[in-house]
Design a protein around this nucleic acid. Structure first.
Lengths: 333, 333
DNA sequence: ATACACGCTTGGAGCGCTCCAATGAATGGA
DNA sequence: TCCATTCATTGGAGCGCTCCAAGCGTGTAT
């Protein structure tokens, strides 16, 4: 059932367990002849090293654990691409767990990941409480992506959400909008930063009295609900800064359903510049986050710490950029 | 570095290693007083069982390995939802690996998953060669989703792709289309089944001479390329059966770019009925696969085998259904 | 009082691997 | 030819856990 072991390979190749172990970790101090014999024996038996045993013996699994908050949001798939590329470049592997955007689910997922004793942990957009993050970080080096936390020993990689939201508001204001609403990401990571950016920008542009926040979450369903709430209200705003792209798509869908045209009647701007925003049907104006780069950077930050090259917490903040497509335009006059 | 062990907890609680072990696996044969003392000690120390050690000792990790062919395709996220729900219902956890739609990448990912000695393996839409699948399956019970394979000991869960494609063709034919092209999923899993279904349906409807297949793949970029190829040709078909939803979205985007309206000029039908298809912007007519149910079924099939309730290979084939939205209509006359 | 059973608890062996110190073989210099 | 040195190879201990047979203490029947 559990497959051949080192011992079996050793017996077959007529050498010792230790020698096979050396070959498997391709040590230079094995003669060419023996190496070939061992490899042949291993292949014949279909031998596959038992990572559990190896990790137990070395205390190092050569694996990074990655927790993805929401498997449905393409944002994370794009970050994972960067993570995986960087990990492979450094000879490490990754294993993933999903959080389902629910704290309890995330805790469970992280717990399982930790039980495998990964060398490090990457949490992508976690919504779990800070305490749980700190607990994980006390166990193993941890990097957060798309979530900031005050804790001293946790590295973070984020885009500058306040600036990003401000870019969105400024873009809309420049088009002539004044009644600009923000649909909020709720408990989602970074949502409060984005909201604050929106509020500050509105104030800076002397639009405080138009300030209005509709609660929602980082999903298209949430966006649709927020749109319904707006439609049910007295006045529709002329522009909406959505929580993220996914959310924006839900908003736009619901608005068109109600006969409200985007951008003629209402402009909508997303956040993240996921793949989705770029689809030609959707053509969502949005704020770009360099997702793949963030994944790479997060991984490299983690590896630096693993190599002991840094002990102070790193706080990477990347620049967001406005990407104008077709979901925003001048307000009706 | 590696955290407290059973031994530490035992020392703190003033009991033996074995007793702590029993408590951790909540065995009924521990007195209430000791149990509480042990749990308290464990909490104080922040003890977390080492799954590597446990798996090594028992030969059973209580974990299912799941390989996702393409993290970007929402289809798989939806299957994973079902997998995870079913796994949790049965007290198991899952860990994920990604395949990036590339055989080499998939092999590597599966390899890593296997090294953790999971109780079973679920491969979602693998594109890797059959031999690699069989090799994995010889190691550990394996279930394939969205990919069929002849091998005797591998269970599969698929929708009936031939029927699905036929539904698509029949729908278009009923609308009055005759020049119906199929954009093919290339090396992607199940693409040949879908193509065959298309061809058979075309013949059955006496449309053989319109039979035309454009090579592509299961991505929107692939779809856009296929659309460009069609646009560059002599005559545009009046309808397109796309490889999958993702692919259809790429096709539609490229067509609209070229000023070809969907469905007025060309009807397009997808496959999978992912979340994407349902977005109101997109409103893609497509073929539904019960994705979450497939995930559940696959997991339960795997668990059955793990419990030794079945030794013969299971071949589940689920019914696809036509979902009509707005991307299909009658051809211009 | 004695025997017995039952329930809780324990130490030892072993899972498959790595690491280390030690062994044996081969090489080169005197 | 002999010894020092290098190089390839080996056995033993130990990683943290589970499993098992055996131990201990209490209660009940005799």
């Amino acid at each position: 059932m559990s497959g051949p072991t080192l011992e079996d390979v050793a017996a077959r190749a007529g050498v010792s367990r230790s020698l096979v172990s050396l070959v498997m970790r391709d040590s230079p101090k094995v003669s060419e002849g023996r190496r070939r014999a061992v490899l042949a024996a291993a292949r014949e038996l279909g031998y596959r090293p038992n990572l559990n045993a190896r990790t137990l013996a070395t205390g190092n699994s050569g694996t990074l654990g990655v927790m993805i908050s929401d498997l449905h949001n393409p944002y994370f798939a794009e970050v994972v691409d960067g993570v995986e590329a960087a990990a492979h470049d450094n000879g490490m592997e990754i294993i993933l767990g999903t959080g389902g955007r629910r704290p309890a689910h995330e805790r469970r997922s992280v717990e399982r990941l930790l039980q495998f004793r990964p060398a490090g942990l990457l949490l992508l957009g976690p919504v779990v409480e800070t305490a749980a993050i700190e607990e994980a970080a006390s166990q193993v080096p941890t990097v957060l992506v798309a979530r900031s936390v005050r804790a001293g020993h946790v590295d973070t990689v984020n885009d500058d959400g306040a600036t990003g939201s401000a870019l969105a508001v400024e873009h809309l204001a420049a088009l002539g909008h004044r009644d600009i609403v923000h649909v909020d990401g709720g408990g989602g990571s970074q949502s409060s930063v984005r909201r604050r950016g929106y509020e500050q920008a509105m104030r800076r542009l002397a639009l405080s009295r138009h300030l209005r926040v509709v609660p929602s979450e980082y999903t298209d369903i949430g966006g649709a609900e927020a749109a319904r709430a707006l439609l049910a209200g007295d006045t529709l705003p002329t522009a909406i800064v959505a929580a993220n792209d996914f959310n924006a798509v839900g908003i736009i869908g619901e608005l068109s359903e109600a006969g409200v045209r985007v951008p003629q009647d209402v402009s909508v701007i997303g956040y993240d510049n996921t793949h989705l925003a770029g689809l030609r049907h959707i053509g969502l104006t949005t704020i770009n986050q360099p997702r793949e780069e963030m994944g790479r950077l997060a991984t490299e930050t983690l590896l630096q710490r693993l190599r002991g090259e840094r002990t102070r917490a790193a706080r990477h903040l990347l620049h967001p950029e406005l990407v104008v497509r077709t979901s925003t335009g001048a307000p009706r006059s």
